[in-house]
Nucleic acid binder design. Sequence first.
DNA 1: ACCTGAACACCGTTCAAGT
DNA 2: ACCTGAACACCGTTCAAGT
Lengths: 246, 246
Amino acid sequence: MTEHTSSTAGGGVPEPPWWNSPSRSASRTQLSREAILDAALRVLDREGLDGLSMRKVADEVDAGVASLYWHVANKEQLLVLVLDRVIGEIELPDPDPDRWQEQLREVAWEGRAAFLRYRDVARASMGRVPIGPNLVRFVEWMLQLTRGAGIPLQPAAWFGDLFALYIASHALEDDIGRTTDDHGSHGDDDAAPDSQAAIGAYLAALPADQFPQLTEAGAALAAGDSDERFAFGLDLLLRGLASHTD
Amino acid sequence: MTEHTSSTAGGGVPEPPWWNSPSRSASRTQLSREAILDAALRVLDREGLDGLSMRKVADEVDAGVASLYWHVANKEQLLVLVLDRVIGEIELPDPDPDRWQEQLREVAWEGRAAFLRYRDVARASMGRVPIGPNLVRFVEWMLQLTRGAGIPLQPAAWFGDLFALYIASHALEDDIGRTTDDHGSHGDDDAAPDSQAAIGAYLAALPADQFPQLTEAGAALAAGDSDERFAFGLDLLLRGLASHTD
DNA sequence: ACCTGAACACCGTTCAAGT
DNA sequence: ACCTGAACACCGTTCAAGT
């Protein structure tokens, strides 16, 4: 199996460049599932989930659309593979049950970071169970840690679900903000500009007698950046889990 | 404003049926936003979120596609309106802070039921914040209850988010099962047939030395029906919130 | 074994035109 | 004021055909 990836004829003598097929430009590497996943992740990050199409992925790898279907069953499978790839970016420390709370916290932030690294992966993850090598690795790790910490099997198993659900759906909330800016900037750099303001105006205009709490506490609802809110929920989940310890 | 909906000419004398416009069949009511939302919910329930198209909604109300755009800005707004409508189906008892845990539990199940009443509403809700009359009503109710129960403003506000996120994302997990059956049944009535089995086989085939927990505890992961799992997480959230009481 | 163009059956949205 | 057909610029997927 030769290491050369292009322009290799009979006896190692290089072909002249003009032998390359006429209109194709430089990067004529072999198409592969890996390359397709890379491209898909790039398109996803650049254009969001709604902007991700098989045609754009094909363009990104400089191939025809139909070619993708040799390496991948369909768009759905492509998304699942991309998700497993992102889950693979989560680093898992050796499980140390004595420090189960810290480690769970640590990995939660790791997971959040991975999901926020590319636009709309969290969105893509909702409603899919991307079972694959990396999710399986993740679940095994969770079980080793929590079971080792003295949490009975059933709560441990169910908590894993809850934990993953929380990380994903919270990351999705962050994606909402950066969802509306499609075509490149043209001067102003506010994300989802008027909608944010419109919501504020709507809430501010609510009749105080019908909505006493909302008009009084309105500010608190929007208070805290996304990380603070994530920390709050994470802490709440851990307190709840701790109550299940032997 | 007359109560008659069709065939009414000048002085109450009915028109003969053949006066109706030529090819249009019976139900020629005025198009309205209400009617469009009803139709959208019907299509959503019947065909799932992926099967919901403006064209099918238009067919359902016996109108041209373009007509929808008079009553509704676009598909996105249509979805938001549908969501607010479903949220409106959640019944809220008068908040009684002395029974805050029971009431929260009660409403959680109510919300879950509303989300599961139509296929894929939960799926549609992810990544959207359908702020409208009914969501606002819901938030006000939550705040009255939790604040009345002695939970400080910030935790109370943030918990609302978490609570809603949990209900929606858990309902979404239920939608996954019934996602794959498109065209009406033709004999066999198993939902997502081979994929379920394939997952089981994959997990069972994992090397026991690399995945000790998964191979030992595999059954526990799948154990419990969806309601039991929902109850577990709900309970965990409430325990966590309780730890924030004054 | 791998890639392709062309075709099929769809989409959401706009717009000039009708009543 | 409300509804329409036709058009535009897209989709995912299949399939016979090429190398």
